[in-house]
Design a protein around this nucleic acid. Structure first.
Length: 887
RNA sequence: GGGAGGUUAGCUCAGCGGUAGAGCGUCUGCUUUACACGCAGCAGGUCGCGGGUUCGAUCCCCGCACCUCCCACCA
């Protein structure tokens, strides 16, 4: 048997065990017995250029806990790792790097060279993040690694687009879209964040043809230059007379009509709204309804166009606004301003203010996909944990809008659409090659669409594409649909909902049975982590400092039901202490276990074991049950707490202290020692097994020392609750004993006695199986509480002794100090008073006819018992206040 | 504008119809040969406020207050 170092140093063994497990092929489903039921998880792919952050660490930890646990239960576990090419993110990173290195832009380089640069960059970094996932201990099957931009995944993307096109669900249209001038691409609605911003509402006069003026209110004066009408509500009496007339558009020399349209809210501002169809989604619709022209005054570069006029062309949006306001002022057309809070649309990636612009893009008509997906989730094909997210999902699906899938980027999946000179659109049928000529007119010179797909257009296929779909590969047949998806609620719409739609639509089956949505990791003070705040916690640094086991355990504990997880050094340090505790417990047990033979506990007669041994086995069995139950319900926090509580409070503080006199006692017969040794070893081994999903490294290291087979722990049988180990009597006896010990210890503290001062005590309780059991435990009780004698009887007479009750039995302690000081009497009196009040409350409840009539009999019974216990305790405590004659 | 969630010990959070829990922190004792990343023990809570249902509410229902978050094309 190996020894364990005195100091616990996780860095000494963590990676060694990881490598050994991976090399042994344990992370492949093929390691499971033939015909084992699969358990499948697909990793939410981190960005290829990214570094593992705490959010990843949380999700991957929870997934690994599930995978390791299921693997030990004998399932054929397949956890597929991979990375995402991350269109915008990667392109931006590479562009920035290029700029810094050479001063060139991607346009200087040209598309082909730039894409090659991105590819090289991605290929070089792809291993980094996967190794970081390894560092955490994740038991992924790296032989099945995927990349969202590789051959197989590209085939799936193309197949899906072609299928949607064939079904009439992918279409190209001119629409008002969200345009990010700094990313120079269109964005989907989801990639735009609406931020409440304080701004202004300006009132501006438009001179009316034939005299007078109308005053409009706007938050965007620079768009005046693109106005093509002014609108009022048709029922608005104030303006009825001017509908149909024309107004002079300030600063432009153009005149525009006054139209009536119901989209105008007469109560807002002046009741007159300027209409800028090219730069506002509302106005765009109004323009279409009323046949208005589109005057584009802001270009794709975010600068004013020529159409805005000589004076403004080339200005940025902000400068243009200032100049327009100045110029209006100069012409005396400003009619006031007031502050106004408005939601400003910003690009999720660059934070630039998004410009609504009209352009031709590819869209997916998503309504029918959403409908089918909701029908499937309503059927329970995919269940949400926590359940409340289902509502959010339903709500979003109900109001879903078509998905803009094209992006004006270079890095990504090229859109398989070709156009001939006449503008005919050619999209190959699913599985068909690139077209050589236009399918409509036969023209040969086809031009491929220059755009690429939204990154999520490959991500949403992941549960399908990782297995090689649309081909019916053996993996696809065996492992799809997957078991569970674990991810943050922040990508519920981006990713989860879309994957469900894709799975249900293209395969007919929802892609996972369960979705577990965890919260967002924050810093220790609960603040959002951000680079600017400088409060970002690096999980890898935490692993180096405290060990991956500690990081994992911390994340599991924190992953309760709330949305935020306050994570940081002091917390990880706290759970590193737990790992250390496990280590030290093993260091204690190891030499004792190696002192002699250890039998398999299952081969021993349970009733032949000592009460303490039976107690710990009963508690172990209970803990195993609670851990499994909690994991079934994805309550990682509960499972981790159950382990922590069992191992520390019951095993270490309780059992270990109680068996010391057995294993180290001189007069204890070897048979007894051997039995306890066997139980000690078993409890430790099973604890390590239960711990393994959470702490895969320290558990192996200790198992190696204890049993010589650390590696095998990953495939060890998961400890299930043991019906044969149920022993309520042993549990009651040991728990009573522990309660008595605690009371004696705090009596010592209260009386200022040294913990080493030996006392004589008595336990008063009627003759019963419990009293007999306690009688047998007297030596143990004496050891734990440092007693010189223990008398157990239905009545114990010791003159001047202190009397109390604990756990329902009488406690008599012969304190050295015979006279009760005034201070002590005060304290006792206060206790008595408090207990009396409690008893009175219970009495009144028991006197209540309604309570007796309506409350369940068990509750009434329990209440009576409580009263009995409290009254008994009061009687005993009061006895201490009676003057002892002659003292 | 719509929707969801929160309000429990100094801090971070569990619990959820029958006398309030954990971890950390504070405090008081301990070099008890596994562990000071420890041991033992104490203290600390009108479970946001007001009503209601119930024999009984921290837990269910209705209001209110304050805080989060998500969704949303009103100038």
């Amino acid at each position: 048997m190996k020894e364990l170092d005195k100091t616990f140093d996780p860095s000494a063994f963590e990676m060694r065990w990881y490598k050994a497990q991976e090399e042994a092929g344990f992370f492949r489903p093929e390691a499971a017995p033939e015909g084992a039921e699969p358990f499948t998880v697909v990793i939410p792919p981190p960005n290829v250029t990214g570094r593992l952050h705490v959010g990843h660490a949380l999700g991957r930890t929870l997934e690994d806990v599930l995978c390791r646990w299921r693997r030990m239960q004998g399932r054929a576990v397949l956890w597929v790792p991979g990375v995402d090419h991350a269109g915008i993110a990667t392109q931006m990173v590479v562009e920035r790097d290029l700029k810094e290195r050479t001063g060139e832009s991607r346009h200087d380089l040209g598309r082909e060279a730039f894409v090659a640069l991105c590819r090289g960059w991605a290929d070089a970094r792809r291993g980094d993040i996967l190794n970081q996932i390894r560092r955490l201990g994740c038991s992924c099957d790296f032989t099945r690694e995927y990349y969202t931009l590789d051959e197989t995944r590209s085939r799936a993307v193309r197949w899906v687009f072609s299928t949607l096109y064939e079904q009439g669900l992918a279409y190209r249209a001119e629409r008002m879209v969200n345009w990010c001038p700094s990313c120079a691409t269109v964005l989907s609605d989801l990639e735009v964040n609406h931020v409440e911003t304080s701004g202004h509402l300006w009132s501006i006069a438009y001179p009316l043809e034939g005299g007078g003026e109308v005053v409009v209110a706007t938050t965007r004066p620079e768009t005046i230059l693109g106005d093509t009408a002014v609108a009022v509500h048709p029922d608005d009496e104030r303006y009825r007379s001017i509908v149909g007339k024309r107004v002079a558009l300030p600063l432009t020399g153009r005149t525009i009509p006054v139209i009536a349209d119901a989209f105008v809210d007469p109560k807002f501002g002046t009741g007159v709204v300027k209409v800028t169809p090219a730069h506002d989604p509302n106005d765009f619709e109004a323009g279409k309804r009323n046949g208005l022209d589109l005057v584009t005054v802001i270009g794709f570069d975010g600068k004013m166009t020529k159409a805005a006029g000589e004076a403004y062309a080339g200005l940025g949006r902000a400068e243009a606004r200032k100049k327009v306001l100045r110029d209006l002022d100069a012409r005396g057309l400003r009619r006031g301003e007031k502050s106004h809070v408005l939601p400003l649309a910003r690009c999720q990636r660059s934070d630039t203010v998004v410009e609504p612009l009209v352009s031709i893009q590819w869209f997916v008509k998503i309504g029918s996909l959403a409908g089918k997906a909701v029908a499937a989730t309503d059927e329970g094909d995919t269940k949400f944990t926590p359940e409340l997210w289902k509502k959010t999902y339903d709500e979003w699906m109900k109001n879903i809008r078509d998905w803009c899938v094209s992006r004006q980027l270079w890095w990504g999946h090229a859109i398989p659409a070709w156009y001939c000179a006449d503008g005919h659109v050619n999209v190959p049928k699913p599985g068909a090659p690139d077209p050589a000529a236009c399918g409509t007119c036969g023209k040969k010179d086809l031009v491929r669409d220059p755009d690429v797909f939204d990154t999520w257009f490959s991500s949403w296929l992941m549960p399908l594409s990782v297995f090689g779909w649309p081909e019916k590969t053996p993996d696809f047949l065996r492992f799809y649909p997957t078991s569970v998806l674990v991810t943050g609620f922040d990508i519920l719409f981006f990713w989860v909902a879309r994957m469900i739609m894709a799975g249900v639509w293209f395969d007919g089956r929802a892609p996972f049975a369960d979705v577990v949505l965890h919260g967002l990791v924050r810093d220790e003070k609960g603040q959002k982590m951000s680079k600017t705040k400088g409060n970002v916690v690096d999980p890898l640094e935490m692993c180096d400092e405290f060990g991956a086991d500690a990081v994992r355990f911390t994340l599991a504990v924190l992953s309760g039901t709330g949305r935020d997880l306050p994570f940081g050094k002091t917390r990880v340090a706290g759970y590193r202490s737990f790992a250390t505790k496990v280590w030290n417990a093993a260091r204690f047990a190891l030499p004792l276990i190696s002192e002699g033979e250890c039998a398999d506990v299952d081969a021993l007669e349970f009733s032949s074991l000592s009460t303490v041994d039976r107690w710990i086995l009963a508690r172990l069995s209970d803990a195993a049950g609670r851990v499994s139950e909690s994991l079934e319900a994805y309550r990682f926090d509960e499972a981790a707490h159950a382990l922590y509580q069992f191992f520390w409070s019951e095993f270490c503080d309780g059992y270990v202290e109680m068996i010391k006199p057995v294993l180290r006692g001189a007069g204890v017969p070897e048979v007894e020692k051997a039995r306890t040794r066997s139980v000690l070893k078993r409890v430790l081994l099973d604890s390590l097994a239960l711990l393994h999903p959470f702490m895969p490294f320290v558990s192996c290291e200790i198992r190696e020392a204890l049993n010589g087979d650390g590696l095998k722990l990953a495939l060890e049988k998961w400890p299930e609750p043991h019906a044969a180990w149920k022993d309520d009597a042993a549990v009651e006896a040991v728990e009573t004993l522990r309660a008595v010990v605690t009371r004696i210890r705090n009596l010592r503290a209260e009386n200022g006695l040294a913990q080493t001062e030996a006392l004589a005590i008595g336990l008063e309780l009627p003759d019963s199986p419990l009293s007999k059991e306690l009688q047998r435990q007297v030596p143990l009780l004496r050891h734990l509480a440092r007693l010189k004698s223990v008398e157990i009887s239905s009545k114990v007479d010791v003159a001047g002794a202190f009397r109390d009750a604990v756990a329902g039995i009488g406690l008599v302690v012969d304190l050295p100090k015979k006279e009760t000081s005034a201070e002590d009497r005060g304290k006792i009196a206060r206790d008595v008073e408090r207990l009396r009040a409690e008893a009175a409350k219970i009495e009144s409840r028991l006197a209540d006819e309604a309570f007796l009539a309506r409350a369940p009999a068990a509750v009434v019974e329990k209440t009576k018992q409580q009263l009995e216990e409290i009254s008994d305790r009061v009687r005993r405590l009061e006895g201490n206040l009676v003057e002892t004659p002659g003292s």
